[in-house]
């Protein structure tokens, strides 16, 4: 069980400041959505949590098994090994490895190694299409299948938390529904802490328990009970008119 806390984070590239004073929290076993249209800093925030971008100021900590770990001093692979897995934008699968090899590559790391057989069996059971295509190169899968593989790969590292960046991007609407449903099912089955950035908010708020709305690098709204919020209200918030 782990909790991710972001505290007064400021980050950017060169002279451009992308994130201004971001504070948020993803509680243990919670699925939190990070909403916002393109170019508002969702990916930047996730990449700060994952160690790919060094913020200018602020704090990001992980609370896991009774200890508090400062993530800002860790490199990306160390953060993975602390139990935060990632389903990145663009999926980042290894094109010249097969489906199974992509999974084994993740499962053989320091964290997942001892559970590699059980994790692989779980992934193939949860996503039968991946079992069917296990010997195929990952680059020959359809977009939706690649997204499932990216999610399965995250599970292979035995994570406690998963950071998911735009799972719906580039997918047909019907496939988006399947991918989001899969994320929800996993979150419940394994009691994972999930932070999911999404711009197609209809699906996202259906599965999320809470949501933050990011606009121009700031959190402008926070919804504690997404089920009680109307679509129009969230849409307005995302467009910055709420």
């Amino acid at each position: 069980m782990s909790r991710i806390i972001v505290d007064r984070l400021v980050a950017g590239y060169g002279a451009v400041t992308v994130l201004r004073d971001i504070s948020l929290e993803v509680g243990a076993g919670e699925l939190v959505a990070l909403l916002g249209v393109n170019g508002n800093g969702k990916s930047t925030l996730l990449n700060c949590i994952l160690g790919f971008i060094r913020p200018r100021s602020g704090r990001i900590v992980l609370e896991t098994q009774g200890r508090t770990v400062d993530l800002l001093t860790r490199s990306p692979h160390e953060i993975t090994n602390l139990g935060i897995a990632s389903v990145p934008e663009g999926r980042r699968l290894v094109p010249n490895l097969t489906v199974e090899e992509n999974l084994l590559l993740a499962g053989g790391g320091p964290r997942g190694r001892k559970d590699i057989a059980a994790n692989l069996a779980f992934c193939f059971e949860t996503f039968p299409i991946l079992a069917e295509r296990r010997r195929q190169y990952s680059s020959t899968l359809s977009g939706g299948q690649q997204q499932l593989l990216a999610i399965a790969r995250a599970l292979m590292t035995s994570p406690e938390a998963i950071v998911i960046d735009e799972p719906s991007v580039g997918l047909a609407p019907i496939v988006v529904g399947q991918v989001i449903a899969a994320i929800r099912a996993l979150q419940e089955a394994r009691n994972l802490t999930i932070l999911m950035a999404e711009q197609s908010f209809f699906q996202a708020i259906e599965v999320a328990s809470r949501a933050y709305v990011l606009s121009h690098g700031k959190i402008i709204r926070e919804f504690d009970q997404t089920s009680a919020v109307g679509d129009a209200e969230i849409r307005n918030a995302m467009m910055g008119v709420g």
Partner: peptide, 24 residues
């Protein structure tokens, strides 16, 4: 071996290795 897979992957997708908990 896992290291062997990682060597085959590293030139194509460095970030995939980091996501898998390996240092490229």
């Amino acid at each position: 071996t896992n290291t062997g897979l990682a060597i085959r992957a590293v030139a194509y997708e460095e970030r995939a290795l980091q996501i898998c908990g390996l240092d490229p």
